[in-house]
Design a binder for these strands. Structure first.
Lengths: 229, 229
DNA sequence: GCATGCCAAAATGTATACAAAATGGTGATT
DNA sequence: AATCACCATTTTGTATACATTTTGGCATGC
């Protein structure tokens, strides 16, 4: 019985999870982990057994995930995990670029000293993990840094949108490992926007974060289109 | 290629709507129209009778609307129409500003000549409705213009996000009628970004649309906070 | 008079039953 | 041999039944 809340903290009144809420979290995790592969059909009864719930909460969960865009519901013909469409991913990145820029600028104006210090600490960790050549850890820290910047923007709507887009992109990234050169470039760009953030230069931070996002997009899309074999 | 559109389009192929899909559309319309007032409790069985469906599809619809942020689900304690929180609306507008800027820039680069011509036509209509002093018609055309610009950006992700934010803002706007001076200013700003769009000036169009969005936000928030009595 | 505890009614969460449509395979016809 | 039609199976969509939990009121006690 784990509390798999993506957003809400553990505080507040006794929070009794409902089954469909838990099912949403589990299914989302399964999709993001690639356990349910893009394009694959979602068999309701099979998942019911797997998750230990009946069809009702499972179906409610599927509607939520469909609203998030992670699954597609075809009337009377079942659900499929949304296939990864490079065109769609490109569109998502395009919006991400704008959101990163917004987040960077707002973070400069609204982040606390503690948050900036934490950002520095995470950036050092990113560096260390690059040196160690540990890709998965690097990406984990990378994601955390961006999430923190978004959190520093103090805008729940931005945060929610960002999380949704991140989920979509994450699935694409998992099957598009870009090369070592791009990895180096990514780190350099982090250096760049970190410098801007340190001096609270909102315009520069936003602009550099947007650049970083665009270059990441280019790399991911290139890997998606060309580097399958 | 089925189109699961938020707007009920003309019947394409055999379009077999499911009940919960229809319920989502109806409930969303009711919420946006203010028929279900913000903060009010949503009684399941009552709505079941009203919509002519049983609890199952209605509940599925409520999950979807909760994912969209239009209702809030409190475990074991029913659903409420999400109250209008000026702070949240402010946050939404902040993101909208970035999306408008993005849409304006992309529209300049990707819109077709026909679309720009249509935009001109709608802008003239906007003018006429301002002169006629017909507020509701003005706002309808206004929304249409912005929707068209977003469509010209050729980015379904942007379009979907934009639609979601628009829905939230619309509810706030419906109870915040701003004054005549702002109305005039709004029209002037439309003139401004239309000029930029006509000459395909992406940077200017984006910037002016962002300005327009920010000023609209200011007016709405001011009306929300101060102008209740 | 006010607070507390308990019970009844209502509402939510979940499971299951039923109806209708889609899927897949078999057999008949050309 | 290929195609079409038809039927059984499976699967989805919906309704309803059941189990908990919340809620409101009433009685009891202080």
């Amino acid at each position: 019985m784990d509390t798999v809340n993506t957003v809400k903290a553990a505080t507040g009144p006794i929070r009794r999870e409902t089954l469909h809420h838990g099912a949403v979290a589990e299914l989302r995790a399964m999709i993001l982990a690639g356990e349910l592969r893009p394009g694959s059909r979602v068999a309701e009864v099979q998942l019911c057994g797997q998750l230990g719930v009946s069809r009702t909460p499972l179906r409610e969960a599927l509607r939520v995930l469909a609203a998030e865009g992670l699954v597609e519901l075809r009337p009377r013909r079942g659900a499929v995990v949304t296939p990864i469409d490079p065109v769609e991913i490109g569109a998502v990145f395009e919006v991400m670029e704008a959101l990163e820029a917004l987040a960077g600028g707002l973070a400069c104006r609204r982040g606390t000293a503690e948050e900036f210090a934490e950002l520095d600490r995470l950036h050092a960790q990113l560096h260390a993990r690059f040196e160690a050549g540990d890709r998965p850890s690097y990406f984990a820290t990378n994601r955390l840094i961006h999430a923190r910047i978004v959190a520093m923007a103090r805008n729940p709507s931005l945060e929610a949108s960002y999380a949704g887009f991140t989920a979509k992109i994450l699935r694409a990234r998992s099957l598009a490992n870009y090369d070592a050169e791009r990895w180096r470039g990514s780190l350099d760009e982090h250096e760049g926007f970190m410098a801007a953030l340190r001096r609270r230069d909102a315009a520069a931070a936003g602009s550099l974060l947007a650049d970083h996002s665009r270059r990441t997009a280019d790399a991911v899309l290139q890997a998606l289109n060309g580097g399958s074999e």
